[in-house]
Computed example of a mutant assay.
Amino acid sequence: MSLLERVTVNPLQCGGRPCLRGMRIRVSDVLDLLGAGVSIETVLEDYPDLEREDIYAALLWAARYIDHPRLSA
């Protein structure tokens, strides 16, 4: 499984927001924790269903998302 395949979007789950591996753990939740200075190790302890690769996937997804050009009308 590639890192980006770990990010799933289901319109019936979490309002269609990107989650990790079909779980109800949103990419944005992981990014918020990391942005607040919480270590990867602590995130993994707090969310035992997460794997280290899930955190890397969230970071990669965010990097790709913000680098996507947006057109304004």
Rank of each mutant, 00 (worst) to 15 (best):
P11N: 06
D54V: 03
R64E: 15
Y56L: 12
A62M: 08
L71F: 15
L59N: 03
M1E: 15
D54T: 02
L20W: 01
V7C: 05
I55V: 12
A63V: 11
L34H: 00
M23F: 04
I66V: 13
L33E: 11
A62C: 09
P48G: 00
G22Y: 10
P11A: 11
G37K: 07
I66Q: 15
D32I: 14
V9R: 14
S39D: 13
R70A: 13
C19Q: 02
R17P: 00
L4H: 06
R26E: 12
V9C: 08
L12V: 09
E5D: 14
Y47G: 00
V30F: 10
L33N: 04
R24G: 05
E41C: 14
V30C: 09
V43D: 02
L20P: 01
P48L: 01
G35K: 10
G16K: 02
G16S: 00
E45G: 06
W61R: 07
I40G: 12
W61S: 07
T42N: 15
S2I: 10
I55T: 03
R6F: 04
P11W: 07
L60Y: 06
C14D: 07
C14I: 04
D29H: 12
H68V: 14
L12D: 12
G35Y: 10
H68Y: 08
L59T: 07
L20F: 05
R17L: 08
E5G: 04
L50Q: 00
E51H: 07
E45T: 15
A63R: 10
Y56T: 08
L3T: 03
E41P: 13
E51C: 06
I66G: 09
E45N: 09
E5C: 10
A63T: 12
